[in-house]
Design a protein around this nucleic acid. Structure first.
Lengths: 130, 130
DNA sequence: TAGAATCCCTATAGTTACTATAGAGTCAAG
DNA sequence: CTTGACTCTATAGTAACTATAGGGATTCTA
């Protein structure tokens, strides 16, 4: 069974443009071509793209995914690197959350300096931003 | 007192490149020029750039800042728009935090499916990503 | 006063992960 | 045989800068 790019797109819910983009980025290998120069994918591609999409859903970067994919290509090796990558990814997100929580505090303080009923001229929010 | 761009940069801790970028983006007006075509800024620019940087510290987009700046240019108007902008910004960040907390949960579940001691072949993390 | 160091200028490319577009070729159905 | 759907490549746009190239202006020093 071989699929044209549009068919692969439907099977994976990944847009045609994105599939070509992943190819250019080296996340999926270049597939065969028909005589008319159409890409022809075997079923392995479905799995690979779904894997990528699952990683993307978890907000991994394409670099992180590239790493994971190269790990997958060495099935006999130890998986500690995989877990380290995930741990680092989690750390980064946690730090991000903390940053944003601090932002919320600052913004709430700022917002508290105006009731929204005065003129721009006297607006505490704008004064505190200056 | 007039400042060259490098002096303005030091006074505001905003890089020369970024100052020029903000000009191109219309966040600060085009300044006068010397005979040698150097930009010459009056002290008002210091305030304006600090305002922009403060907003950036709070993670506002340049579009949001552009809005705030146009509000500032109409000092007699009501400030409700300013406060609405801040409120929307806070909402967006809060939603973002919630999303990322959900990611952490998913990633922790995923991470729990492997102890990091097996081979890639048998790694629960990679299996669950497929 | 010459030359070097420092500053400034414009324009362009790179970053992330796509998305949108233009302009052209391929293929299947009526 | 023509229409429509599909595919192809190449390029530009998104956000907010940062980095670079290649040049001119100014200033300091010998």
């Amino acid at each position: 069974m071989h699929l044209k790019i549009g068919e692969l797109s439907k099977k994976t819910s990944c847009s045609v443009l994105t599939i070509r983009f992943y190819e250019k980025e080296g996340l999926i290998p270049e597939p065969e071509r028909t005589e008319g120069n159409y890409r022809l994918y075997d079923i392995g591609y479905v799995e690979r793209i779904k894997f990528i999409l699952n990683c993307r859903t978890l907000n991994m970067s394409l670099n992180e995914i590239r790493q994971l994919l190269t790990y997958k290509d060495n099935p006999e090796k130890n998986c500690s690197d995989v877990n380290e990558l995930i741990d680092l990814h989690v750390c980064a997100i946690k730090e991000n959350i903390i940053k944003q929580q601090k932002l919320i505090e600052q913004l709430s303080d700022l917002r508290g300096t105006c009731d929204g009923l005065c003129t721009i001229d006297q607006c505490g929010v704008l004064k505190n931003l200056a």
